[in-house]
Structures are given as C-alpha cells and as structure tokens.
Design a protein around this nucleic acid. Structure first.
Length: 441
RNA sequence: GACCCUAUCGUCCAGUGGCCUAGGACACUCCCCUUUCACGGGAGUAACACGGGUUCGAAUCCCGUUAGGGUCGCCA
C-alpha cells in the first residue's frame, strides 16, 4: 500500500494572493480531497522584509474565502510544524551540515553553493510528462547558492528540506517551477531521499495572453471578495481553468469536482483569464442559490449601504432581483428604493415619461383603480391595469411606465406588478400621490 | 541569447489515426418571450499557427519554422 497523499501550498506572504497561486492551492486541495490525503499550508517567509502579519492574513482570508481548508499548517496545527519557515532554523542547519559533511557544498564569496552532479536529470512530471535537463551544460545550471553570507537561506534549499520533513508525496505547483525541479531533485538525491512526484500546472495569463501581474483585472483574490462574487462561483470557474471533466459539464458542485478531479486531466496549455465568463458563473450561481445563502451573501452589502431589515422583509425584495444580479455589490443600488420613501427620480425618466402630456391623469386613474382593490397581488394588479387601459381605449404602456417611475423613480427595475405587490397597497398609493404632487404640471 | 513548456473558434474546454463537412460554454449578432431591464428559448458568425514527412487515411504521430509563456538570482 502506498503512503497517504500529502500535498502542500507554500506561498510567500507578499501582501496579496494571486489568482494563479489560488488556483495552485485549489488544485492541491482538490487532489488531496480526491485522494483522501492531507492538504498542508506552509508559509515561505524566509524573506523577512515582506513578512508581516497582514500579509499572512491575506493568504488565510483568500484561502478560507474560497473554501480551501488546510489539514495542517498555521492555525490548524499538525505533527510536522512549525509551518513558518522563519521558525525552522534548526532544521535547516541540520540538513545544511549533512550536505556539507557529505562534500556537496563549497564556499564562494561567503555564500554556500551546492555542487550539481554534471549529468542529465529527468523529471517525470504528472502533467508535463518527461522533461530532461542536461547539467553538463553549466551555462544554464551554475551551481546553486543555498545560503547567503549572512546565514540566511535560499528558497530552493528550504523548500526541499521542508518537503522532506513534511513528507510531501506530491508537489503540485506553477509551471514557473518546472525549470527548478531538476535542481530540487539533485538536492533530494544528495540528501538520500526519494523525491516526491511532481505536477506542474500552466500559468494563468491575461485575456490578451500577456503575463498577469498584480494590478491586472482579476489578478488578486481580494478583488473577488470586494467585487461581490460568490466564492462557490469563483471556485467553480477556477477549477475549469486548466482542468476539465472531459464532458460538457461546467457548473458542478464541489463534491462532483472532487470525485472527478485528476492530475492527468490537467491541461498543459496556459489559460487566458476571462472575467466575463467568471461573471456568468457568478450570475448562474446566484440564480440557482437557495434564498438563505443568497440573503447571507447580500446582507453585508446591504448593511454597507445602510439597509437593515429582517429576512421576512428582505427576501421578497431580493427575490425580485435574483435573476438579474451579477455581483452582490449591485444589490443595494437595485433595491434601495424599497427601503426609502425619499427615493430619487431619474431626471431622464421623468422627462421622457412623467412630463408627457396625460401622464398625471394616468397616475390619478391608476391610483383610483388600485385604491378600490382588496387583493393586492401581481395577477390582480395586472388584470386591473389592463382592464383600465382597455376601458379607456389606450395601451397598457400608458399606465405601466408612469406607474413604474412613480413608485421607484426609475424606468428600469423589477417586473412592475410584482414590484407593486411587494411594496404593498399603502406605499404604492402614497408614492403615486407623492409623485403627482411633486411633478404636477 | 541558451534551456524548458505550449500551440483547436476572440476566450475556456472537448477531440488521443477513420465516428470531424471539428462539439459544448462565455462573449458577440439576430429572432422569440416580455409593453422596463434582465432571465429563458431558438438561430448565426467564428478555429485545427505554418511547412515538411509517416500512413490507405492526420486536428490527432514525427521533424522543422514561427509565435506565446517560463527558467537561467546571494527573489520566492
């Protein structure tokens, strides 16, 4: 029986979580969950300059937002800690002595270098296949530095030591590390340890194919959190960037993705990031979302806009926009007029419709007709409005448009009759009255 | 520059020698639904980078070219 799978995500705290890093974490997590293994988080903070509590927090927040829980690591514990490289000095020292005593190291300008064996090293990558690098070519493979003159460590060395100590069985990381892997394998061999299996996933590029950097749209996970996305939608979209279930399934529950995910199905081609498709996923998820979850995700945005209401008042209003919302961020603006009697009137709509000759009469007529109603539901309201229009020999639109603007201040919004029903008779009549007074010709 | 990876619609994927006059999704265009805006339904535009092989047969295999990306750090 082979050892249980152990994979890790090992970010450096740079102050932001890149979409590519998040996708790497996601693929590691999916693989661990698929295999019933462990997903470990390790913070590679050897560069003390940029190691701040805030920078680490950004990583935790991003991973948690995406629902990527780690089995071992900071705040989770585990038997292979500490999980911050800055706290593993003694371990690195021990491995350094081993390499030194075995004659693999030499000093150069105060720094310590690892002497490569000058031979062909082959990586049997789970995604890229066999990749060979010829170390006889010293041009591209100069002996690598593993320790600086000040005693601090270089990435390659601590990365390998930690992967050994933490007993990683697979290393799934970005393709930018593919060229580093033969070097790492040499380190494993010098230490007498069997290297893990490797899988290098292609990078994520901008929509136009250029390299994605910090400021580009969609590059930072924070931008999704702050942009009003549903984490489950973003996660689903990310899964499909470089991986596919091979049939035409796209919107899939996480459990299905976990059961179908495999490294062998990961693409070798770099994916171009498309925010428009990500938005479509978000809209689809919102449409299919249970009301409780929809409200839960909408509430922080409503609160930010000063809109507080109990679920029984919120839900009917939110339901009206469920098929239209793309980002939760839009919700306050879409529904604000429901919670405020001093809603603003769109000047263009007023000019185009309310100022039209006859509009004030239509408002008076519809108000009168509706005031007589005992049942105030969408179907009744629609029937009544159409009956009124027909009796006067005019088109329903002559009533629909002024009424919409009278009660909401806008020319676009939810279905009119449903909107009136949710508003309720008293508020509808009051709003029409208020509008008539305000825009009396 | 050297080395490595990659190459199907604008984008994400399907396609692992015949089922491909290349399929799905996003985006875009048009139509229907709807007297708002959307959703939804239908239709359409649109791709095998190029050149050589191998083969009865190639998007699929091989070689080259070109293009894109990555790596060559006392960054991670």
């Amino acid at each position: 029986m082979s050892a249980p799978v152990r994979v890790r995500f090992a970010p450096s705290p740079t102050g932001y979580l890149h979409v590519g890093g998040a996708r790497t974490a996601l693929f590691n997590w999916l693989y661990a969950r698929h295999q019933g293994g462990k997903f470990i988080l390790r913070i590679e903070d050897t560069d003390k300059q940029r190691n701040t509590a805030e920078a680490v927090q950004v990583i935790y927040d991003g991973l948690r937002w995406l629902g990527l829980d780690w089995d071992e690591g900071p705040q989770a514990g585990g038997d292979h800690g500490p999980y911050f490289q800055s706290e593993r000095e003694a371990i690195y020292e021990k491995y350094f002595q081993r390499l030194k005593e075995a004659g693999h190291l030499y000093e150069d300008g105060g720094a310590w270098r690892f002497r490569f064996r000058r031979e062909v090293v082959e990586v049997d990558d789970l995604i890229c296949g066999k990749v060979a690098v010829d170390f006889a070519n010293t041009e591209i493979t100069p002996d690598m530095t593993i320790r600086r003159p000040d005693g601090s460590w270089i990435f390659h060395f601590v990365n390998v030591v930690d992967d050994i100590e933490m007993q990683m069985t697979h290393v799934i990381r970005g393709e930018d590390h593919l060229s580093n892997t033969p070097k790492h394998i040499q380190l494993f061999q010098a230490l007498g340890v069997e290297p893990p299996r490797y899988g290098h996933i292609p990078l994520i590029l901008n929509h136009d194919g250029s390299k994605m950097s910090k400021r580009d749209q969609g590059a930072s996970i924070t931008s999704y959190i702050e942009g009003g996305y549903a984490p489950e939608a973003v996660r689903n979209y990310f899964c499909l960037l470089g991986w596919s279930p091979k049939d035409d399934r796209e919107i899939m529950p996480t459990e299905e993705i976990i059961s179908r995910f495999d490294l062998a199905n990961v693409n070798r081609k770099g994916a171009h990031f498309d925010i428009a498709k990500c938005d479509w996923f978000n809209a689809q998820y919102i449409q299919q979302m249970p009301m409780d979850r929809y409200r839960e995700l909408a509430q922080p945005w409503l609160a930010k806009a000063g809109i507080h209401a109990p679920a029984e008042q919120l839900d009917p209003v939110l339901a009206l926009e469920k098929m239209k919302v793309v980002h939760f961020k839009e919700i306050p603006d879409r529904v604000s007029f429901f919670f405020n009697e001093d809603y603003e009137y769109d000047p263009a709509a007023v000019e185009k419709t309310l100022r039209k000759p006859g509009a004030p009469d239509r408002l008076a007529q519809i108000a009168e007709a509706y005031s007589a109603l005992e049942t105030f539901d969408a179907a009744t309201l629609e029937a009544k409005l159409k009956e009124l229009a027909s009796s006067l020999g005019v088109k329903p639109a002559e009533f629909i448009h002024p009424t919409r603007i009278a009660v909401s201040g806008r020319s676009v919004g939810p279905s009119l009759y449903h909107m009136l029903e949710v508003l309720g008779k008293a508020r509808v009549l009051a709003r029409i009255q208020q509008t008539r007074e305000r825009f009396a010709a």
